[in-house]
Simulated scan of single mutants.
Amino acid sequence: NLGLRAVGYEGGASPDALPRYALLLNPDTVLPPDALANTVAFMDAHPDVGILGPRLVREDGSLDRACRRSFPTPAVSFYRFSGLGRLFPKSPRFGRYNLTYLDEHVQADVDSVVGAFMLMRGEALEQAGLLDETFFMYGEDIDLCYRIKKRGWRVVYYPQVTVLHIKGAASRKASARAIMAFYDAMKIFHDKHYRAQTFFLVNWAIDLAIGGMKRWALWRDRMRPSGRKRVASA
């Protein structure tokens, strides 16, 4: 199993032959008939957009909050994992991780969309490169958005298209492995983009927190009956 990174690119673009657009699409998504036509039309009309992601909903109709995110800076991550984001979801400061203070039906420029459906401009990929193989299952989408935004491209959340995401279907059978990959991706992203400019005591605290959360999540997963295993969620 090469992870979602390789699955997403199977039969798709290579660094040597990038198309005008490339689509990263998970197998656990259900698209409306006009999804591709509408998203491509938007990209054609907005040549400064490097990545576009639609509104994703869960099977119960609720928003898949991972479909629009801010980059997990140390501050943004603290707001989320301390519970402040849950306590104050409408706060532009504390609700930044999943942008819960924004109307889910309104288009917005964001830091990152999710790799379950990510329409990418070939020119932007030529500049930023493809998905980083260091990540496994989680984190590669937000890392790519980071690199593309750093090169001046826009990343847009586009709720005019809604896609059903049967979240976890691709990793439900390997819950413990998915949990480990989820927390490992946090550390990889921090090490790659933030560690060098972060005070060493803050880095130490972040490493300790990620390790502690991973051990706690794995312990809780082991304690659950096999039919109720959970999958990590961004």
Rank of each mutant, 00 (worst) to 15 (best):
R222P: 00
L63Y: 11
S62A: 11
L164E: 03
T198P: 07
V30Q: 08
V114F: 02
R65T: 15
H105D: 11
M213I: 01
R55K: 15
F136T: 05
V161I: 08
L52V: 13
D132I: 12
L23E: 05
S233D: 00
L18S: 13
D64V: 14
V155R: 06
Y146G: 11
H193M: 09
A37E: 04
D207F: 06
N38P: 00
R5E: 09
A176M: 11
T73M: 06
L25K: 09
A185E: 06
D184Y: 08
P89N: 04
D103A: 07
P72F: 07
R154F: 10
R195I: 07
P89Q: 04
F182L: 13
F81L: 10
F81Q: 08
R65Q: 12
C145F: 03
G95I: 02
S70A: 15
N203F: 01
Y97A: 09
D141N: 09
A35K: 04
L84Q: 05
L63G: 09
K187Q: 10
F94M: 00
W219H: 01
A196S: 02
K229E: 02
R154C: 11
L56D: 04
W219T: 00
A205C: 05
Q160G: 13
D60F: 11
T134C: 05
Y146K: 15
Q127A: 15
E59W: 10
K173L: 13
K187C: 07
V231H: 03
